[in-house]
Nucleic acid binder design. Sequence first.
RNA 1: GGUCCCAUCGUCUAGCCAGGUCAAGGACGUAGCCCUCUCAAGGCUAAAACACGGGUUCGAAUCCCGUUGGGACCGCCA
Length: 465
Amino acid sequence: MVRVRFAPSPTGHLHIGGARTALFNWLFARHHNGKFILRIEDTDRSRSTEEYIESIIEAMKWLGLDWDEGPFRQTDRTEIYQKYAYKLLEEGKAYRCYCTPEELEERRQKAMKEGKPPRYDRRCREIREILDKPFAIRFKMPVEGETVVHDLVKGHVTFKNSELEDLVILRSDGTPTYNFCVVVDDYEMEISHVIRGEDHLNNTPKQIHIYHALGMNPPNFAHIPMILGKDRSRLSKRHGATSVLAYRDEGYLSDAVVNYLVRLGWSHGDQEIFTREELIKYFNLEQVGKANAVFDSEKLLWLNSEYIKLTPEDKLYELVKPFLIKECYLNEGDSIDLKWACKAIKSLKERCRTLKELAHAMRYYLLDYVDIEPKAREKYINTETIPIIKEITEKLAQLNDFTQDKIEKIFMDMVNERGLKLAQIAQPIRVVITGSTVSPGIYEVLEIVGKEKTLKRLRRIINAS
RNA sequence: GGUCCCAUCGUCUAGCCAGGUCAAGGACGUAGCCCUCUCAAGGCUAAAACACGGGUUCGAAUCCCGUUGGGACCGCCA
């Protein structure tokens, strides 16, 4: 039975890198009909917050990564870790360390200055008597030999045990540390595969020794490459939005984000766009690459536009509604005709890359009047074009059946009668109606805007000139 | 500094494990053309990569070694 977990620490929002780790775990579980477990690693009490836990859960839900067990919280399990830590202490596989954090920090700084490895010098390892001082519990790492990590992505990776440190497993305040918790939890939760970021690869041999000391068999490991920013350094705020929820708020579809993320490090031949079902069907660890990947927001934008094109209009309306309300193009309680909304969205969906853009474009369908861009006004609304606008307005006013076909006929008749280019009529009208030189086809726009609003906008311009 | 990981177009990647079919394929982005009432979308075309040096071999993007470059980790953080 495949059992995997995602174990974020709530010291920040769910970011792009964490989301991909969660996604790979989720996909692996679903592919193998296994279980996906959510575990909150909140043993860093000073930095973990409730707010972040909720934010992470919200992001997971938004991405559609549902879990089968949890969320478990390590702070609820302190006694369990203490039990195992003391077991190791009693068996002589761990020892009391009386060095204070301040002393250790001082020695670390000194070692760094002298160019020595900043590692704990094991000075408390041989103390036999029990001192009446606060202590942390340290794990006795083997001093010689080698440890091999059999990694499903990286292959066999060998570490010299002499490089491993006697790490603290229980702090002096009785709380456990990360490297100890993971081992205990992954064992107790019967995790079969640990899929996590490559930044944990160096921790793995240490964890393997803890497993052995506890008499447990280590799980399978798979360390996936990192996601880097445009400058090839670790992805951070400097590179723009890194929080998953920020992408939701910017108008990205969760399926697009998932699709983008999965292709960072994983591939299935030349295929770029996948349904969830395909992802579950095809996902495997064999096709996960070894090299780090640079996050490319342009490609995400492209994928998002592809997903917008693939999404039916009525569904898009539901998705874009919050953005319309936020931009005040629509009031909270207002109900607009769904058929009409779909028509409006259909005209715009292949011109927008995000829901935010779509909402913004919809303003000229929803509002009574629109602001006109100064440059567009200057170029297309002047003494030469006003007569044309007037003539079209009169003809449109007489049209009872305000449909695309009929509107087109009016435009074309005028083109023929007056010997004009279509653009000479279409552009000024477009500017008056949409406030911009860019929009869907003008006949389509007019039909959707409707006779009433169209005439209102045209007449206001005519009267103002 | 030590240890570990990695290396195909600007970016994501296919190909590598089982060497020849690769004068290296796809996608994003970029440029041009077509379509056209504007803008997109769509169609077509183009520029663009096997980091470098050795070796093994009849033959290397593919295997080995080294160099260089990038990343990660070395906490009573996770």
